[in-house]
Write a protein that binds this DNA or RNA. Structure first.
Length: 477
DNA sequence: ATGTTC
């Protein structure tokens, strides 16, 4: 199958439209990354996506592409709202998994001696690991439903963060399309105790610093300086979103569909059908849960910093730069053959990267939408901005992270806990995790080189590098 | 990713 990949340019490859494919497929990848795509089923999955009704232009893959449930992770697909379908596999089990980037007024030198205490305090404050619960007590069903409708705003009304945060969250931290009557009682049960919890896998809270500045102009507009202390939070909708995905996948799987489906995991239904509308309403509720979750966690991290460092909120200067979703489907207008068209854009392990023109005022109207691309726990992360080219080539989308290249199982077999810890210690990175197993699974070697991934999108002109950060201390699930 | 096979 790899022979079918034709080079468009040194960062872009194309799979021709064959068989049931309705459009060709495209993969963004530097030459040293394209080989990694051929090791798993991700290219076949991308071809399968190209067969879905209503798909526009191309089935797209970002350089962090790897095998996922039905859809590849790192995939983007935009469907026509009238003829097209919506697929839970195109969103992922962790609905609105995403990242937020926070700046502080401190420099890395200010906390050098406090890092152990800070990390321990974070570990004690934020429930981590699979099954983690009760950061802020169990919510009543009535209260949880308010979370599902109001998203990040719910958290702010409860005192977690500030009103101004909403302006720097994708969708302002709330999708109006949420409907709580599309949520099962089991999902409600799971969600009630999980708000403000980190979860497991690649989720984390990272204390880091600005290591290199690529755009002096944009970093200045975002008030980011070299050596400045920053926080990155990566988590999603926890067991709640997982249950929502599971519930709606099951319902769709027993339905009759009128198009060829190459893989059951890719199950999709018409956007304009009852089950399509129900899924979107439930997905939106889970997205709102995830935004509330990141909002609560950010506030808990801020409180922990104040207490542990014994400094005022003013001196700490905690300020949300941006919050992005990288597992979501959204209705957006894009130009297709020069005509404005409403599409359902699936981004699974892909980040929205809108250009400056999409914002009517403020900083983002000058610089474009901030994009946060975390690497693995032992390397580095990037803050980028979206571009015009993203709007015309990728439905305003870019990559979301380094991308796995080794399965969790293989990672566990290949090394042990002490070796992983030693490597991190050599790099002077402090880590605390709920379980040793997760830390082994998350080792650097299990991931692609995030620098190559980000450079692919930068050189393609899709998302532009602003700053690189490096980790000092990481809380893992 | 996930009360990791309701």
């Amino acid at each position: 199958m790899s022979l079918e990949l034709k080079m468009i340019n040194e960062n872009l490859w194309q799979l021709p439209q064959v068989g049931e494919m309705r459009v060709p497929a495209r993969v963004y990848a530097k030459s040293n990354l394209i080989d990694l795509v051929k090791h798993d089923k991700s290219l076949q999955q991308l071809k399968n996506v190209a067969t879905l009704p209503g798909i526009q232009n191309f089935a797209l893959a970002m350089p962090d592409i790897h095998q996922g449930y039905g859809f590849p992770i790192g995939g983007v697909a935009a469907m026509d709202v009238n003829e097209g379908v919506i697929s839970p596999g195109g969103v992922g089990y962790d609905i609105n998994c995403g990242v937020r980037f926070i700046k502080t007024n401190l420099s890395r030198q200010d906390v050098e001696k406090n890092l152990d205490d800070l990390l321990t305090a974070l570990y004690q404050t934020i429930p981590t690991g699979i099954g983690s619960q009760n950061a802020i007590g169990k919510l009543s069903e009535t209260e949880l439903k308010k979370v599902l409708v109001n998203g990040a705003e719910w958290a702010i009304n409860k005192g977690f963060g500030k009103e101004r945060d909403l302006a720097v969250i994708e969708e302002n931290g709330r999708m109006n399309s949420a409907k709580v009557d599309k949520i099962s009682s089991r999902a409600l049960q799971r969600g009630a105790s999980q708000l403000g919890t980190l979860g497991s896998g690649n989720h984390f809270v990272e204390i880091g610093f600005v290591d290199e500045i690529f755009s002096a102009d944009i970093s200045q507009k975002l008030n980011l300086k070299k050596d400045q202390l920053i926080i990155i939070i990566h988590t999603g909708s926890r067991g709640f979103g997982h249950q929502v995905c599971d519930d709606h996948l099951r319902k769709m799987l027993v339905q009759k569909i009128d198009f060829p489906l190459p893989d059951k995991q890719l199950i999709a239904v018409k956007i304009q059908s009852k089950s399509g509308e129900d899924y979107f309403a439930a997905m939106s509720s889970a997205a709102n849960f995830a935004w509330a979750n990141r909002q609560v966690i950010m506030s808990l991290v801020e409180q922990t910093f104040q207490k542990s460092l014994r400094i005022s909120s003013e001196k700490l200067g905690f300020r949300l730069i941006y919050d992005v979703s990288h597992n979501i489907a959204k209705f957006e207008d894009h130009l297709i053959d020069g005509k404005r068209k409403e599409l359902c854009v699936h981004r699974k392990g892909a980040t929205r990267a809108f250009s400056a023109e999409n914002f009517s005022g403020g900083t983002f109207h000058e610089i474009g939408q901030p994009v946060i691309i975390p690497g693995d726990m032992g390397t580095e992360s990037y803050l980028c901005v979206g571009t015009k080219k993203a709007m015309s080539e990728t439905f305003g989308s870019t990559c979301h992270g380094a991308g796995r290249m080794m399965s969790r199982r293989k990672a566990l077999k290949s090394t042990d806990f002490d070796s992983v810890m030693n490597e991190l210690r050599k790099k002077n990175i402090k880590v605390m995790a709920a379980r040793k197993k997760t830390l082994i699974e998350e080792m650097s070697r299990a991931y692609k080189n995030v620098r190559d991934v980000v450079d692919t999108m930068h050189k393609s002109g899709i998302s532009k590098k602003v700053v690189r950060t490096k980790p000092l201390a990481v809380l893992k699930g």
